[in-house]
Design a protein around this nucleic acid. Structure first.
Lengths: 195, 195
DNA sequence: CGGATAAGTCAACAGGCGTTGGCCTACAGT
DNA sequence: ACTGTAGGCCAACGCCTGTTGACTTATCCG
């Protein structure tokens, strides 16, 4: 009952989705036009409407996303941050969907909603496993560091961050993420510089 | 010679700039229309063109910004991160320009440029004073955490971060920023969770 | 083979955009 | 008081946008 039978237009549908992801990622929601997306997919703009109904629903379809976090249950707690940051950067570079979500999420409420959902659903459980203490706050802080990294490296393209190797970036940021995931907070305000 | 004499239209010019900042901050570059800005300022859209030439130049004028970092030379090195994050959050909440820059910088190259300039010119010196070792990378990492925080709290509005007090947020993030400003990196990859 | 249905094309719509030039109005300098 | 000039408004331009409906072509089923 629930199995969708393959349609003759599946190829076109996929081409539209691929072009949409690329355009939304490169230009953001408002500057990515249906006409440009259709041109990339080598079909008529009206086909986009036929298959996806509206620009907003096209974006919703293009922004379907799973972080695909690896099985972190088997990772020793003190290495979770390293694995998490590394996986996230890898995922970011291999899939344009995240870029589309970030670029669009800054001006489009629906995209911001989706972003909140993804991080709430997929990051909070990780934080919950590592510390029973305020896991939602911890997950939010992790999101802030991870998204800030993506923002500065892939969107704003700050030269020092663009030039760095991924592994080097992980070495720098993993301690901060580890702090958010399992550190304590009150006493540290007066602490020295050692992390 | 360089002193501009006051013009009769200075009030209008200021009203336009104020409305522009608000609209750019709320809507981003492309959704903030000249017509809407003019309506907010209670003048005709053509006045915006007369005084600022084009939408792009209006944005450039509206995005003029100084972080106004306090005199960090007098702050003990181990407290610089705390003061820095606190000042940044305060500055963010008191001036719509930063919000405009972030919202626009994600899709507008000129805004991204401006953002790079601001952080390179105003954050790198702070990093240089605290550590002679790769100060530009350190400044970039600080920017990633600070902008990520702003992104998640003020733009995406992740509920846990929105609900937190500013001081509490500083307590959590300052250790991470301190790590970027004066920590070392190689040995820490294997370290435990204590920051 | 013929007819139904899906895939795809074309042209146009209504509306919004940045931008322009002409026109009126009111103040400033003499 | 007169006049030049700056401030301001109005109407329109050309363009681009998302979206629609009518039309043609190809494919599948009986």
């Amino acid at each position: 009952m629930s199995a969708e039978q393959p349609r003759r237009s599946d190829g076109t549908r996929a081409a539209i989705l691929k072009a949409a992801r690329e355009r939304f990622a490169a230009d953001g929601y408002e500057r990515a036009t249906i006409r440009a997306i259709a041109a990339d997919a080598a079909i008529d703009p009206s086909m986009v409407m036929r298959y996806y109904g509206s620009k907003e629903r096209l974006f919703a379809a293009a922004a379907e996303f799973d972080l695909r976090l690896p099985a972190l249950e088997d990772v020793p707690p003190e290495q979770v941050a390293t694995v998490l940051v590394g996986h996230f950067l890898e995922r970011w570079e291999g899939d344009e969907t995240l870029m589309a979500l970030l670029r669009a999420g800054v001006t489009n409420p629906a995209a911001a909603d989706r972003m909140r959902e993804i991080f709430a659903a997929q990051l909070v459980p990780v934080a919950e496993r590592l510390s029973p203490d305020r896991p939602r706050i911890r997950a939010g802080l992790v999101a802030s560091q991870i998204l800030g990294l993506a923002l500065c490296r892939y969107v704003l393209r700050l030269p020092p961050l663009v030039a760095m190797e991924r592994a080097e970036l992980v070495d720098w940021t993993a301690p901060a993420v580890r702090h958010y995931l399992s550190g304590t907070v009150a006493e540290e305000t007066q602490a020295g510089s050692g992390v």
